[in-house]
Computed example of a mutant assay.
Amino acid sequence: MVDTRTAPVALLILRVVLGLLFLAHVWLKIFVFTPAGTAGFFASLGLPGWFAYVTMLWEILGGLALILGVWPRAAALAMVPLLLGTIVTVHGPAGFFFDSQYGGWEYPAFWIVALIVLALSGDGAKALRPTPLR
C-alpha cells in the first residue's frame, strides 16, 4: 500500500537528489576535469570527443528538469541511456563493485533503478509541469 500523504514528498526528494547528482557530475566535468579534458577522456574510450559536450549538456538539462519538476517522468527516462552509456564504456569493464579507478557498474545501475522508480511513480510534489504519463 502506498501512503498517498507522504509519497509526493518522497518523490520530490528522490527527484531533487537525482537532479543534484547529475549537476554534481557535470560540475566535476566542467570545473575539475575541464571540458577539453573530458573530451580527451571520451576520445581515449573510442568515443568522439564532441560527445563529451553533448553529455555535459544532457546532464545539465536533465538535472535541472528533475530538480524543477519539468516533465520529470520523461526527464528521468531520458537520463537512463546516459547512465547505460557509462556502464558500457567506463564502469562496466571495471567490474561490478565501485572499488577501482574507474569504479564499477553497481552505482550507475542503482541510479538507473532510481530513475525508473521515479518515472513509474509520478512527478512528486512541487513539480512545475506534471507529465501527461498517467
Rank of each mutant, 00 (worst) to 15 (best):
residue 76 A to R: 09
residue 6 T to E: 13
residue 106 E to R: 02
residue 22 F to R: 01
residue 68 L to I: 14
residue 94 A to P: 02
residue 100 S to D: 09
residue 6 T to C: 05
residue 73 R to Y: 06
residue 112 I to D: 04
residue 81 P to D: 12
residue 97 F to K: 07
residue 133 L to H: 02
residue 59 E to M: 11
residue 86 T to Y: 07
residue 50 W to S: 10
residue 125 A to R: 09
residue 110 F to Q: 10
residue 35 P to C: 12
residue 16 V to W: 13
residue 120 L to S: 11
residue 21 L to H: 07
residue 1 M to N: 11
residue 2 V to H: 11
residue 117 V to N: 12
residue 115 L to E: 01
residue 62 G to C: 03
residue 7 A to D: 05
residue 115 L to T: 01
residue 36 A to Q: 06
residue 6 T to L: 14
residue 122 G to P: 02
residue 25 H to T: 00
residue 76 A to M: 07
residue 6 T to K: 15
residue 4 T to G: 08
residue 57 L to C: 10
residue 91 H to R: 09
residue 80 V to N: 03
residue 103 G to Y: 06
residue 66 L to Q: 04
residue 73 R to L: 08
residue 114 A to P: 03
residue 134 R to P: 00
residue 1 M to A: 12
residue 17 V to G: 13
residue 67 I to M: 15
residue 87 I to Y: 02
residue 70 V to Y: 15
residue 119 A to W: 05
residue 40 G to W: 10
residue 63 G to F: 03
residue 118 L to S: 01
residue 64 L to M: 10
residue 63 G to Y: 08
residue 98 F to H: 10
residue 93 P to Y: 15
residue 7 A to I: 04
residue 6 T to D: 09
residue 25 H to Q: 09
residue 8 P to H: 12
residue 33 F to C: 00
residue 59 E to V: 00
residue 60 I to W: 07
residue 9 V to C: 03
residue 30 I to D: 00
residue 89 T to R: 07
residue 130 P to W: 06
residue 133 L to M: 11
residue 65 A to G: 06
residue 32 V to H: 08
residue 127 A to T: 06
residue 33 F to W: 13
residue 76 A to K: 10
residue 50 W to P: 00
residue 34 T to E: 05
residue 44 S to F: 02
residue 15 R to N: 03
residue 122 G to N: 02
residue 131 T to Q: 06
residue 63 G to C: 10
residue 78 A to R: 09
residue 84 L to F: 14
residue 80 V to T: 03
residue 124 G to K: 08
residue 80 V to Y: 13
residue 89 T to W: 15
residue 113 V to E: 04
residue 92 G to S: 09
residue 70 V to E: 01
residue 122 G to L: 01
residue 66 L to V: 03
residue 73 R to N: 07
residue 107 Y to V: 11
residue 74 A to H: 06
residue 61 L to Q: 07
residue 25 H to W: 10
residue 44 S to P: 00
residue 16 V to Y: 02
residue 88 V to M: 14
residue 94 A to I: 01
residue 30 I to T: 01
residue 3 D to L: 10
residue 78 A to Y: 09
residue 124 G to A: 07
residue 104 G to W: 03
residue 21 L to S: 07
residue 7 A to F: 13
residue 121 S to A: 15
residue 57 L to F: 11
residue 78 A to E: 02
residue 3 D to W: 13
residue 101 Q to R: 13
residue 55 T to R: 08
residue 131 T to S: 14
residue 106 E to M: 06
residue 115 L to R: 06
residue 81 P to S: 12
residue 75 A to H: 02
residue 120 L to R: 11
residue 127 A to C: 10
residue 19 G to T: 04
residue 30 I to H: 02
residue 127 A to K: 05
residue 105 W to R: 04
residue 42 F to K: 03
residue 45 L to H: 14
residue 36 A to N: 00
residue 3 D to G: 07
residue 65 A to F: 14
residue 83 L to N: 13
residue 36 A to G: 00
residue 102 Y to H: 11
residue 110 F to G: 14
residue 45 L to C: 08
residue 75 A to Q: 01
residue 125 A to F: 04
residue 48 P to S: 08
residue 36 A to R: 05
residue 103 G to F: 07
residue 114 A to N: 13
residue 15 R to P: 00
residue 54 V to W: 08
residue 59 E to F: 09
residue 66 L to Y: 04
residue 90 V to S: 11
residue 51 F to W: 15
residue 43 A to C: 05
residue 44 S to E: 10
residue 131 T to K: 01
residue 116 I to V: 15
residue 106 E to F: 06
residue 58 W to R: 11
residue 132 P to A: 12
residue 42 F to C: 01
residue 83 L to C: 15
residue 123 D to V: 03
residue 5 R to C: 00
residue 118 L to F: 14
residue 18 L to K: 01
